[in-house]
């Protein structure tokens, strides 16, 4: 994400668009089923904000929910992640990597493979419709191995809140095997333009 974004006018979404958005959310994030009525109440009027670089941010009552680059998969805004941390698959980086991620660097594999990092344990290999059995185990590892291109939340060692959101450019299995190279590029991180954007 770019360092600073200007506030743009918001426009109300048609309820049909809202419905399809909700559907696509549920397919991308099966774990959201439990929370979807709270995130997107049926009565609520969702608004879209067009941002530079063909990015769209969806806002509900002044609370940013999701954003979308071009027409790719929706990514949750970090404020939403903080509200529902259990609804999204996550990985954890070690302490040393935090400052790089928070200044917008590409997340590299060593930050995940070291002792402070947490990659999925891979107990579950198949992705289920309702996300059954997925979650964090005692060791703080996500139970399902994540594929390349999947959206993922980045948490940090010693912190409770998530610090970034992005798409994996390398599956988590590959990360474990290779142990180097970029893992998430162009993430939305704490303190970036999207984070600082005023939405009300």
């Amino acid at each position: 994400m770019v360092a600073s974004i200007q506030t743009a006018p918001k426009s109300k979404l048609k309820s049909s668009v809202q419905r399809s958005l909700r559907q696509s959310l549920l397919t991308t994030y099966p774990l959201l089923h439990r929370y979807i009525d709270e995130i997107l109440p049926k009565k609520g009027s969702l608004e879209a904000m067009k941002l530079p670089d063909r990015c769209t941010l969806y806002v509900l009552d002044g609370e940013p929910l999701f954003f979308q680059q071009d027409t790719t998969t929706l990514l949750p805004h970090l404020k939403l992640v903080h509200r529902f941390p259990a609804a999204f698959p996550s990985i954890r980086i070690d302490r040393g990597a935090i400052r790089f991620v928070l200044s917008g660097a590409t997340l590299m594999a060593p930050g995940l493979t070291s002792t402070g990092g947490r990659l999925p344990s891979g107990i579950l290999t198949v992705r289920t419709e309702d996300g059954a059995g997925e979650g964090l185990d005692e060791e703080d590892r996500w139970t399902r191995e994540l594929e390349k291109g999947e959206p993922v939340i980045v948490r940090a060692e010693g912190k409770t809140e998530a610090c970034a959101v992005g798409f994996l450019v390398m599956g988590t299995k590959d990360v474990k095997d290779k142990g180097k190279g970029p893992v998430i590029e162009d993430a939305h991180y704490l303190g970036d333009g999207l984070w600082k954007l005023a939405t009300d």
Binding site: I98, L102, K159, E161, C163, L190, G191, W195, K196
Partner: peptide, 9 residues
Amino acid sequence: TLPPEYCEY
């Protein structure tokens, strides 16, 4: 504006 635990950054 960050969560307090990230203030150090």
